[in-house]
Amino acid sequence: MSIDTTLGALAAALNEEGPAVEILHDDGPAGHRVVVPQDAPDGTAAVVRTSGSTGTPKRTALPVEALAASAMATALELKMEGQWLLALPLHYVAGLSVLSRSLYAGTRPWAMDPARSFTAEAFTDAAAELTDRVRLTSLVPTQLQRLLTAPTGETLSALRRFDAILLGGGRAPDALLAQARAHGLRVTLTYGMSETCGGCVYDGRPLPGVSAREEGGRLWLGGDVVASGYLGDPELTAERFRTDAAGTRWFRTDDLGGVAGGLVTVRGRADDVVITGGVKVSAGAVQLCVESVPGVEAALVVGVPDAEWGAVVAAAIVGGAAEDAVAAAVRAELGPAAVPRRIARLAAMPLLPNGKPDRMAVAALLAG
């Protein structure tokens, strides 16, 4: 299905002149197909599936008002509307949000060719097709890393032409952000998920109309951007979503963190704690440490079962850093229990179609 046809279907859904849309992955040249979800409640504009990076994807119902609120809040925060370059799959919320923001802004996005792999050359070619003065795009860290690895002058020129590069879908390594700043790129870090219509916290601050709070160490996000729930799973919907006395919808995230001085801090996933030999270790903290080791281009840290310790810390790394250097850095900063007992050196990190690291594949690799 062409981007124009998909835009038309989503526009009809947002105007409540047509049924809700559910965009699914497809192996054809368009890379996606659109179906009508028969089980979507009234008022639903779109159904998106969570990435499934740590389990079975969930079908999330996004009301018209949620996508409208997300688009408006994004424009208010960025203080601009413009033409978007679609560089992410449409069947994930980040790609869908590019379409909905474009529709509310009255601009037509330009989509990268889904038949081409994401490369610096493909991105640069697509960026050259943009015509508006104000240009925007949304990327994941892996994509930005590829763009800034030995970049050509043409690629840097294309990147600098963007008025805002939204970077989300996972934590960006400090070295990558420093490199982006050195090249003069206007990068905004975003935090959000399918259940919040994508990014709803920019550079640590909730978007206009979005609230954040901490309960028992877990982050909750609230506002009109929050989904109505999961289709076909009322128990999980009741567990993860709530509406307070003021009528505000809230979603309980999978992340540990806090809110202080209006800033949201994410400390890692609630399920990333590895209990090894009775000692609790944060996989997120270990990953942050590993990424700081010279020669590590990318890293992913998980816990894997172990007959002796119950579980052990394991790491997949891309780059030329020596394993003893990785171990020494982690031991010095976090203690011996946090040192990865299994390290796999990969040519490239396994990725999901949306560009996020495939945690399930990496965990299976390290457990083998």
Rank of each mutant, 00 (worst) to 15 (best):
E297W: 05
G222E: 07
Y92C: 08
V273E: 10
G199K: 07
E77C: 09
T243V: 15
A127P: 10
R345C: 00
T155E: 01
E81H: 08
R252E: 13
L156G: 01
I317H: 06
L130F: 02
T243R: 13
L10Y: 04
Y230W: 05
S102T: 00
V274F: 07
A321P: 06
V187H: 12
P114F: 00
P206T: 09
L166Q: 10
L256A: 15
T243C: 11
A311G: 04
A11L: 07
G368L: 07
I275P: 00
R341E: 14
G320W: 07
A122M: 01
G204P: 11
V47E: 01
L288W: 10
V296W: 04
A105T: 11
P29I: 12
A45I: 11
L346E: 03
A175D: 14
L62Q: 10
T152F: 00
Y104L: 15
E77L: 03
S138H: 12
V48T: 10
D27H: 10
A245D: 15
N15G: 11
A329M: 04
G223S: 05
V93R: 04
A327H: 12
D271G: 07
V259N: 10
A327E: 13
E291A: 14
V296H: 07
E17H: 13
G18V: 09
A20W: 09
L231E: 01
G258S: 15
T60R: 00
A298W: 04
L139E: 02
M349T: 11
E22F: 06
D132G: 12
V313I: 11
G184R: 01
A314I: 10
T56N: 03
Q179H: 12
L103N: 05
D271K: 00
A338E: 06
C200S: 14
V339P: 06
A71C: 02
A105D: 08
E291Y: 01
R33F: 06
A299M: 05
G223N: 04
L256G: 13
S100V: 13
D306H: 14
P353V: 11
A127C: 08
L231M: 06
A40L: 12
Y230D: 03
A322R: 14
V302R: 04
I3R: 04
M80V: 13
A40W: 08
D132T: 10
P89E: 04
G277A: 05
A61W: 03
F123Y: 06
